[in-house]
Each structure stands twice: as structure tokens, then as C-alpha cells.
Simulated scan of single mutants.
Amino acid sequence: MRIPAFFHPDYAPADIPLLARLETTAAKLERLRLVDLMRPAPFDPARLAGLHDARYVQAFLHGDEPMASRQGIRWSPQVRDAALAMLGGQLAAAETARRTGIAMNVARGFHHALPDAGSGFCPLNGLALLAHVAPAQRVMVIDCDEHGGNGTEEFAARLPNLYNVSIFGTRFGCRGGERSWAMQVRAREEGFGRYLDALREAEALIDAHRPDLLVYQAGADCHENDPKSQVGLTTAQMFARDLDVFRMARDRAIPIVFVVAGGYQDADRVARLNANTVRAARRVWQPRSGADHT
């Protein structure tokens, strides 16, 4: 089984290292035959109406400074086009997951983008977008990035169908709130059992709120060798984390979309960790595939 996955070259402008590494991941996934890679349709910025503040959206679309660069990456047409292309991938992945059970967007996380500004290398919140465009469906984010999903937390307080569960090492302003739960875990000091306990809390929240769609932010920056990691998961523990989240979705027949997020080691190492996340997805959906972590 190959996981349906979306990627467009616009995601990864070569002159922006934080984005260019997505090309490394996409190429590795295709080379290993782990995914069926597809290009998403262009994203219509009109679909952002009512999600982000209109003045901010216009500033980002047209490069009006200083607002256009608030996310921490200097604005350029390539940065704008990358963000919009990734949002197109989010919508395509969600549509595919509803048909097949699972889909991937080979895109950065979006979880720091706030309603009125970009933040933390995230210009637009593609997690909240999935709730915004489907107001009749309950969307729950399971965010396992190193950094808490502060932006998604703010959107959860605004969108009655959005739920946000963040398990993180670095709080990044994420403290929990309306339809949002914040769990800080330092597995290196507290042990992996504490991380598994947080995943059990996430599972209980899934059962309590019965989402129609799960969105998994599979952060690679939780890895013990990542320069930003306070969580400190080993490669094997990250693989176990991924298996656990995918099983939550499969066992309840809830469609799941996942994105690759974070990761500040070199591009090849991040790509290997991202590939392990896809291997975990394949193992859960096809238990006899023989996939394993590397």
C-alpha cells in the first residue's frame, strides 16, 4: 500500500532552506515507493475569507510590510505561493482522506499562524482551514510537534467545530483553552511512559468529542538530536508515537490527514524521520507490509 500524498514544487523554493527541505522529503518518499505523490489543485485565496483577519490576508498576498513577514520568513512571491500551494494540498488531502481513510500533505505545519498575523514560520493556518471550510464537521488536531500549537488554539476558541490537542516540549504560548488541551512532556527526563500517557489523554478526548476528521501534525523536531528538542524522543519512540496516533484513527474509522512539521536537523535526516512516519501509517493500514523504522 502506498499512502496518497500531495506535493507541489511551489512548496519548496530552493532559496528558502526551511521550505526547500520539503523537496528532499518528497523525493525520498517517492524513491522509497511509500506514497502515491499527486499535485493539488491551485488554492483560491477567497477561501480564507472569515478565517484570518482580512487586512492581514491582503498584506500577505500583496507583500505589504511589516505584516507580510510577521511569520518570521522574509516575504517574497515564492513564500506566498508556497503557503497557498500547501493550503491547496491540505484541502486535497482532506478530500482524499474522507474517501480512503488516510492522506498526507508533504507540507510544513501551520499551527503557529494566528487569526490576525503569521507566527513561527507559519503564515496561514492550514489546520484551522479544514474546520473553516467544513463547518458542519468536527475537526480535531492531534499536534505532536516540539512546539505547542498556539495559533490553532486561538482558532479553536473561534471555530465551534475545531478541537486542538497539543503534546509538546516547548510551550510557545500554548496553554489550553476552549476546545484546546495543552500537554507539556519532557520524555528525556520524565520517560516515554509519560508521553504515552499524554497520547492516552488524546485518545480519550477523541472518544469524548467524536470528530469527523483527525489532523495529525507529526513533528520531526521532537527527535532527541534536533537542536530545538525538549521532548527528546528517540527514533524508535517517534515511530511508536506515529503508530499510536494512526491506530486511534483506524480503530475508530475516522479519516486522518497528516503533515510533516518541524525538524531542524539537516534535510536528509528530517526526510528519514518523515519517511518513518509514512512507514508507520502503512503499517497501521496494512499490517503485513513489513514496514519498520530506520
Results as ranks from 00 to 15, higher is better:
168 F>Y: 13
168 F>S: 06
169 G>Q: 02
169 G>R: 04
169 G>W: 02
169 G>A: 02
169 G>Y: 04
170 T>W: 02
170 T>R: 11
170 T>N: 11
171 R>F: 01
171 R>K: 12
172 F>T: 10
172 F>Q: 13
172 F>V: 03
172 F>W: 07
172 F>A: 15
172 F>K: 02
172 F>L: 12
173 G>R: 03
173 G>V: 05
173 G>K: 00
173 G>S: 02
173 G>H: 07
174 C>M: 13
174 C>Q: 15
174 C>H: 09
174 C>I: 01
175 R>M: 12
175 R>G: 15
175 R>A: 12
175 R>C: 13
175 R>L: 12
175 R>D: 14
175 R>T: 14
176 G>W: 05
176 G>V: 08
176 G>Q: 12
177 G>H: 08
177 G>P: 09
177 G>R: 06
178 E>G: 00
178 E>S: 08
178 E>M: 02
178 E>I: 00
178 E>C: 08
178 E>N: 12
178 E>F: 00
179 R>L: 01
179 R>F: 02
179 R>Q: 13
180 S>H: 00
180 S>Q: 07
181 W>E: 14
181 W>T: 14
181 W>V: 13
181 W>I: 11
182 A>R: 10
182 A>Q: 09
182 A>P: 09
182 A>F: 03
182 A>Y: 07
183 M>P: 04
184 Q>G: 14
185 V>W: 05
185 V>K: 05
185 V>Q: 07
186 R>C: 09
186 R>E: 09
186 R>L: 11
186 R>D: 10
186 R>I: 14
187 A>N: 13
187 A>D: 12
188 R>W: 06
188 R>P: 02
188 R>V: 09
189 E>K: 07
189 E>M: 00
189 E>R: 13
189 E>S: 11
189 E>N: 10
190 E>R: 02
190 E>M: 10
190 E>L: 02
191 G>H: 08
191 G>N: 08
191 G>W: 02
191 G>K: 03
192 F>C: 06
192 F>D: 06
192 F>A: 04
192 F>P: 03
193 G>M: 05
193 G>T: 12
193 G>D: 15
194 R>P: 07
194 R>C: 10
194 R>I: 04
194 R>Q: 12
194 R>L: 12
195 Y>E: 03
195 Y>H: 05
195 Y>T: 01
195 Y>R: 05
195 Y>K: 04
195 Y>Q: 03
195 Y>S: 01
196 L>A: 13
196 L>C: 15
196 L>D: 10
196 L>P: 06
196 L>H: 09
197 D>Q: 13
197 D>R: 01
197 D>F: 07
197 D>A: 15
197 D>K: 03
197 D>V: 11
198 A>K: 03
198 A>M: 05
198 A>S: 14
198 A>I: 05
